[in-house]
Amino acid sequence: MPETATSSAPGLAPTGAARPGTATPRRPRNPRFDVRSVLLHVVVVLGALVMLFPFFWAVITSISPGAGLSATPSFVPTDPSMSAYLELFTHLPFARVTLNSLGLAVVSTLLQMTTGAMAAYAFSRLEFRGRDVIFAVYLATMMIPLQVLIVPLFVEMKYLGLIDSYLGALLPTVSTAFAVFLLRQAVNQVPRELDEAATLDGAGHLRIFTRIVLPNIRPALATLAVFAFMQSWNSFLWPLIILRSPELQTFPVALQSLQGQYTTQWDVVMAGSVVSVLPMLALYVLAQRYVVQGVASTGLK
């Protein structure tokens, strides 16, 4: 999607530069001197600054000890300090919490990629009875929101003895219909001639899957990886319910619990927020294309 965005598809573009009343369909030769264009730039850049302001303010707050004690905010901290970050990682268990979240996100992502790619191969390349029905059931599971499942899922985990364990947090995320759907689309686009050639060379399904299909669906796997990582890193409801002890908690849950009943140390809460955004920011900068695709193709955030 981002590539198509950079290619200059006009859309409404001519309108921004169009002079009212001109009969010729040609645009003004130099749009830079167009007042409307300048105005548009100003508005859009101002909008971007407004969008960025909450992030900026979180960073400023995080390095201003005692933020929230005074009613007059200062845009340049008078006494900048990293004490809130130190607090997070020394007095509060955020080193452990970060590792918990990272570990769960990485394992969940890898498993989702594996299970998803295997199922995608089956649905795209193997013939078996009831294939379409099974695929429809997979798709139907996408319709079911997690919120409907939390109570029985909790009960199930209780029977399995997995309350307050990493496994309990992880298991419901190891396979998603979205992964299967996304990857099946990709596998369908791998030319079948490649499989046939490999079959003639004596390759079986396992070989075709690992040597031909997987290398050819790398972009889709990347989109899935970014998306699955984000889902896990940002997930809140299920970890909130299943993980009870502080040393097992994930980042968003621990962060939310920093809010005090009566007083809140805003510099610490904002420091935690900043740290929590960093992995996503890094991933976003490195793989913006895949992030945007992943989110846009599902509508899940």
Binding site: G47, M51, L52, P54, N234, F236, L255, S276, V277, M280
Partner: peptide, 11 residues
Amino acid sequence: YFLPVVTSWIV
């Protein structure tokens, strides 16, 4: 403009 989309709801 897209950056907040990848930020967690809690943050």
